[in-house]
């Protein structure tokens, strides 16, 4: 009889619901602590990851800016066809009087040299870049809005409102244009106040 009461008490304790009723608050607290710990860890990982990613971008941005700036500067200073590249560009855009090796005029020589240099450097180093030569009487760079360049096609040079633009762009589909400021090497043309700009910029990644 007494054994039956003891067994009944146990049965009632475990399966009658009183066990869970007594422990419900404890179970709730355990669940809450578990969730708080998980959320704290997740926030900690996110914060540490986001800071380190920004550091990476700063270094890449610095390296790309330096590369763009020095490329544009060296390109315009180099000697070619008995003169300097900036003089050859000026002749290409204005009078086209200079004749270089192989009977090529200034524009053809510039085009050939650009392709050779880009193939030997930025393309070989697997860089995504934009190389633009622009003639404008406005010192501001056209098409450069909020740090993003507008895509104006590849290997094209054309007369657009009497302005001459040569562009070669190698950005991949994942990028939307050149986001980093280009290395800029402006060349004054004659006495009219016009400027030729040689711009080399690395694509956004």
């Amino acid at each position: 009889m007494k054994n039956k009461n003891t067994r009944a008490q146990k049965k009632d304790y475990f399966f009658g619901g009183s066990f869970f009723k007594e422990k419900k608050a404890q179970l709730e607290i355990i669940g809450l602590v578990f969730i708080v710990i998980l959320v704290s860890m997740a926030m900690l990982f996110y914060l540490s990851y986001s800071v380190s990613k920004k550091d990476k971008q700063l270094y890449k941005q610095y390296a790309d800016n330096e590369l763009g700036a020095s490329y544009a500067s060296v390109f315009t200073k180099m000697s070619i066809c008995g003169t300097e590249m900036n003089k050859l560009l000026e002749d290409c855009i204005t009078t086209r009087r200079i004749v270089c090796e192989g009977g090529l005029d200034s524009c053809e020589t510039v085009n050939k040299t650009i392709l050779y240099l880009l193939d030997s450097t930025l393309d070989l180093w697997d860089e995504s870049y934009g190389f633009t030569i622009r003639w404008t009487d406005d010192p501001r760079i056209e098409g450069y809005t909020d740090g993003t360049w507008q895509n104006s096609g590849e290997n094209s040079y054309y007369f657009d409102d009497e302005k001459w633009v040569y562009t070669r762009r190698n950005c991949t589909d994942e990028t939307t244009g050149i986001k980093r400021p280009p290395g800029l090497s402006p060349i004054p043309v004659g006495t009219t106040g016009d400027t030729i700009s040689v711009e080399v910029g690395m694509c956004a990644q």
């Binding site: 590369l67 020095s70 490329y71 060296v74 200073k77 000697s79």
Partner: peptide, 16 residues
């Protein structure tokens, strides 16, 4: 890699 101009001080010509 860093692009640099290479000057020949005798002819004053700069190479890429």
């Amino acid at each position: 890699q860093i692009p640099v101009a290479l000057l020949n001080p005798i002819t004053k010509e700069k190479a890429f």
